[in-house]
């Protein structure tokens, strides 16, 4: 319980320090998987943003962030996977089932 509460607190604090342009919206951004492409293919976010991938295809996909060792489970239609990016940097990823599908999350303060 305590951990959950602290997690919530951290999120609240991050929200408070989000850049003004982002206003008060929650730092969550969605990447759609559509017709074997990640959309947007290159996503720019602020540190602390949670990126949510949602599979809209009839075929399963996955999200593999090779450099940081993050690997989603297989996402069937409407399946979702989220990962929070705390550190600045450029994070390339692919679909583990269709590695020609490529995307990037660019985290910049």
């Amino acid at each position: 319980m305590r951990r959950l509460f602290l997690g919530g607190l951290a999120a609240t604090l991050l929200l408070a320090f989000a850049p003004p342009s982002r206003g008060a919206e929650a730092p969550t951004v969605t990447v759609a998987i559509d017709n074997f492409t990640f959309e947007p293919a290159v996503l720019h976010v602020a540190p602390g943003t949670t990126v949510v991938w949602v599979n809209h295809d009839d075929i399963p996909h996955s999200v593999v962030l090779g450099a940081i060792g993050v690997h989603s489970r297989t996402l069937d239609t409407d399946g979702r996977f989220e990962h929070r990016f705390d550190k600045a940097g450029t994070f390339g990823y692919i679909c583990g089932l269709h590695p020609h599908m490529k995307g990037q999350v660019v985290v910049e303060p």
Binding site: I94, G96, L97, H98, P99, H100, M101
Partner: peptide, 12 residues
Amino acid sequence: GLVNVVDLQGNG
């Protein structure tokens, strides 16, 4: 019978 689906390459 060959297996060519285990180590999919970067180009798919």
